[in-house]
Write a protein that binds this DNA or RNA. Structure first.
Lengths: 348, 348
DNA sequence: CTGAAAGCGCTTACAG
DNA sequence: CTGAAAGCGCTTACAG
């Protein structure tokens, strides 16, 4: 394999000069430049990245801020696994990652961490889930003052100059869910959309999913399905009463849509009361959701590769810093349609 | 970041000795070994992979044998793109890849290339699509005599000691397809399974897909769907007569399954004659199939990330050779359910 | 059993 | 405008 040394020898110059030409650092005579470029082109020389990286390697410090997960809301454990996987890899190349958490049900905890992180010194990059929109906007000025790149993960916000966004297109995922009901549910029946008040208020993402869902039926007027909405305070045992009332009142409901990972609560209810639906759709392949998918109670789960979201956000930032890789403004996660029969390919 | 040099200094020994302990090369006193191990553990030292790779880098020669693609059978262009992407990457780390082709409709062309490749000298690894089963088995002895690792891509064969397999589980993908018909097609209607004679004979994969498809209905006796089979000589304009006869004879056919990329031929027919189906399923997101998916004529396309199959087969082999990475015996591609609304995430 | 030294391919501060 | 030299972190052939 051809190296910078071979080129230097051929051109009768030093490797330093070859390097200068290679990176357009200037200070090289036009004649030499031409000669070197000719040899490079002719030989098909590509700089060896290992040599390059070894020389350039320095310590990079990344800071990550995401919600912590618990049994009640397990979603964030998947991005976290991906982040941990990426940390193992980049730490062998001289990166340090400082992983911080907030409580996704407590805006104050988010704000506190956010302000602390945005005012840190001597860091090289940030990865943040701007889960609370209001609080994030409140501290926009701190973002603007940042001299290091930052990537948004899972939740996207407009009007910030984040280096990139990693996550799903929530609107489209809702639209797709509606299509799946339309394909699989008995004609003329009703889909029940279940959401919580607090989710609608705080969760930018859940809101977009429902908007996408409704948009499908606006655009596909030939669909024979009807939609009803049920708002509950919180997904837990308490939904039993609300949902039972609803199902008794309208016995034409043959499908249920929950625009979040909380579909397991509804599945538990359906199993307990032995209620059969044509189509039940929710998000994210948690252990519980996988169980109900396998039991045939959940029909489709919408997947978004949460592990990869975590993994990619770190790797992208590191490659950007260490290898000058240009970042795209968005890295949109796929919208996977998961059924019992292909679920094994989407477990993390 | 801590290095081998730091450890040597702390232990008052040379870096060479640290390296010997690190890799259990022997020839180090027990006392020194213990000391070094203690420091390593204590400091959380991880060897820097860049330094390691730079030192170890040598030229690896890989040979790849796959079918060439053309307009009539475009599938292999996707793995090829992935292979080309991987070649760009590994060639910067000192690998040379020799890409060879055969005609997937001509066993002789396969056999000729196969024998030539299996008797090559001075290569480090092979990636082969053993598309023709009979011919591959015929030269099993050449495989057995190989001293270098080889990976099978897309088609898997038992009884060879290939280092790994990269591809989809065809049986399961057929099973999943059947489930999708069951979910989305009108009760009591019929699914038409279309296959070609020559495909059944030559294409191990297509055969498995149909077996999986039928297995679903054996295992799910509650399904109300019926199955009929139509064998055609070859997918082309000529199918018009056969399929028309079939549809006239049985007007209860509401779904069509083609266990290959050739679903576009059927979609073209359905569009031309304005025939409406509940569910039409085929494989692989070729440009044509994408077009008919978007037009609403194909309902589901089964995806298998063909680009990644090509990409991964090269990268895995290279990491195995250059970085001693252990290979798993199988790298099974996901079975993606693609509809119009999420197709953008699966185009290559 | 151990060390000193060379070298993998590149980059850079320094000297001229 | 250019070269010689040092060095990134690791591995290895050689000498003792």
């Amino acid at each position: 394999l051809i190296t910078i040394k071979d080129i230097a020898k051929q051109a009768n110059i030093s490797t330093g000069t070859v390097d200068r030409v290679l990176h357009n650092r200037g200070g090289v005579s036009e004649k030499t430049t031409r000669l070197v470029n000719k040899i490079i082109e002719h030989s098909g020389f590509k700089p060896n990245l290992i040599g390059r990286n070894l020389k350039l390697s320095k310590e990079y410090i990344l800071v990550v801020l995401i919600p912590f997960s618990n049994e009640e809301s397990p979603f964030w454990k998947y991005p976290k696994w991906g982040i941990e996987k990426a940390i193992k890899e980049v730490s062998q190349f001289g990166a340090k990652v400082n992983l911080r958490y907030f409580n996704q049900f407590d805006p104050k905890s988010f704000e506190k961490e956010l302000v602390a992180i945005l005012t840190l010194k001597d860091i090289d990059g940030l990865i943040i889930s701007p889960h609370f929109v209001k609080e994030s906007i409140k501290h926009k000025n701190l973002f603007k003052k940042l001299k290091v790149p930052y990537i948004f993960i899972n939740t996207d916000l407009d009007g910030f100059n984040n280096a990139s966004f990693v996550g799903q297109d929530s609107f489209k995922s809702g639209y797709l869910s509606a299509k799946l009901f339309d394909i699989s549910q008995t004609r003329e029946s009703t889909v029940l959309v279940m959401q919580t008040d607090r989710e609608l208020e705080d969760h930018h993402i859940l809101d977009s999913r429902v908007k996408g869902f409704k948009k499908y039926f606006e655009e596909n007027s030939s669909s024979t399905l009807k939609i009803e909405t049920l708002e509950v305070i919180k997904f837990g045992e308490n939904i039993t009463k609300d949902i039972t009332k609803k199902l008794i009142k309208n016995n034409n409901i043959k499908g249920i849509f929950v625009p979040s990972i909380k579909i397991n609560i509804v599945a538990e209810y359906l199993e307990k009361f032995e209620i059969e639906m044509d189509t039940v759709i929710g998000y994210d392949l948690s252990d519980d959701n996988l169980k109900y998918l396998k039991a045939g109670i959940i029909t489709f789960v919408i997947g978004q590769e949460p592990l990869n979201q975590g993994y990619n956000s770190i790797k992208l930032m590191f490659d950007h810093l260490a290898h000058n890789m240009e970042l795209k403004s968005k890295y949109i996660s796929p919208i996977h349609v998961i059924v019992k029969e292909n679920s094994e390919y989407y477990t993390q």
